[in-house]
C-alpha cells in the first residue's frame, strides 16, 4: 500500500478486516509489530522506531475511541508540543467554542462526540505530515459531518497526507484515493467511488478472515 504525499486516502473494509491494526502498525503501538515487510515514511524504514520518534517525524493518529485523561485540561492537551501556542483556532475548526472547552478536563465529563472533536483538534495542532484518522466521524451527528470533512481537507491543504479509516460513504467521497482491506490484505485500490462500489457489492460488513475474491 502506498500513501502519497498530500493525499487523502480512505481505507475501508468490514469489521475485523484489519483497518485499525494497519493504523496501529504505522503508528507503532505496543503489540502491533509487523510479521513481515517494511513500513517506510518519507523514504525511511520506521519499523523499529517507537511511537514518539515516529511522531517527531510527523506521524500522528486520532484513535477511534480516544483516551480520556483525569486532570489534564483540553488547553494542555492541545499544546503538548508547543506550550505557548494558541489552541483556540483548532477548537473553532472542529466546531467547539474555545471559551467553553479550553479549561475543561479531558475526562469522562465530555461526551463521545466532544472527545472525538478534541482529538481532531489535537491532530490539527500538531501540523502533521501524516495523520491517521480512525473513524473520525463515528459518534458525530450527521449535520456535523461537513465540519469533519472540512478538518480533513484543511490537513490536506497544509500538505499533510491523511489515512482516513471510515465506514461512511460521505467521508469516502472526500478522499483522493481509496483502498479496500479484507482479512488483512489490500484487495483493491482506486478511486473512492470504485472502491466504495466494490465494498458495497461484496456486502462483507464483518470480515470472516477469508480474503474476498
Amino acid at each position: 500500500m502506498e500513501l502519497r504525499e498530500g493525499e487523502i486516502h480512505a481505507l475501508i473494509g468490514g469489521n475485523g478486516s484489519g483497518k485499525t491494526t494497519l493504523a496501529c502498525l504505522i503508528m507503532g503501538c505496543a503489540g502491533y509489530a509487523p510479521s513481515g515487510g517494511e513500513i517506510r515514511f518519507a523514504g525511511r524504514v520506521i519499523n523499529s522506531l517507537p511511537i514518539h520518534e515516529r511522531a517527531r517525524l510527523g506521524i500522528t493518529m486520532a484513535w477511534q475511541e480516544p483516551a480520556r485523561f483525569e486532570g489534564l485540561q483540553v488547553r494542555t492537551y492541545l499544546s503538548l508540543q508547543r506550550p505557548e501556542a494558541d489552541s483556540a483556532p483548532y477548537l473553532e475548526q472542529v466546531g467547539l467554542e474555545p471559551t467553553s472547552y479550553l479549561d475543561r478536563p479531558l475526562d469522562k465529563t465530555l461526551s463521545g462526540g466532544e472527545r472525538k472533536r478534541i482529538e481532531l483538534a489535537s491532530v490539527l495542532a500538531l501540523h502533521p505530515r501524516l495523520a491517521i484518522l480512525d473513524e473520525p466521524a463515528s459518534g458525530i451527528d450527521l449535520r456535523s459531518l461537513s465540519e469533519i470533512a472540512g478538518v480533513i481537507r484543511s490537513l490536506k491543504a497544509e500538505g499533510a497526507s491523511v489515512l482516513l479509516i471510515t465506514h461512511r460513504e460521505e467521508m469516502v467521497e472526500i478522499a483522493d484515493r481509496a483502498s479496500y482491506l479484507c482479512a488483512g490484505r489490500i484487495v483493491f485500490s482506486g478511486s473512492p467511488d470504485a472502491v466504495a462500489a466494490r465494498f458495497k457489492a461484496r456486502r462483507c460488513a464483518i470480515c470472516d478472515g477469508k480474503v474476498c475474491q
Binding site: M27, C29, A30, P50, I51, H52, R54, A55, R56, I59, T60, M61, W63, P66, A67, F69, Y77, L80, Q81, S122, L126
Partner: peptide, 12 residues
C-alpha cells in the same frame, strides 16, 4: 497503555 500511546503520538 492507551493514554501513554496517545501522548507519545503527540511527540512526548
Amino acid at each position: 497503555q492507551k493514554q501513554l500511546e496517545t501522548l507519545m503520538a503527540r511527540g512526548l
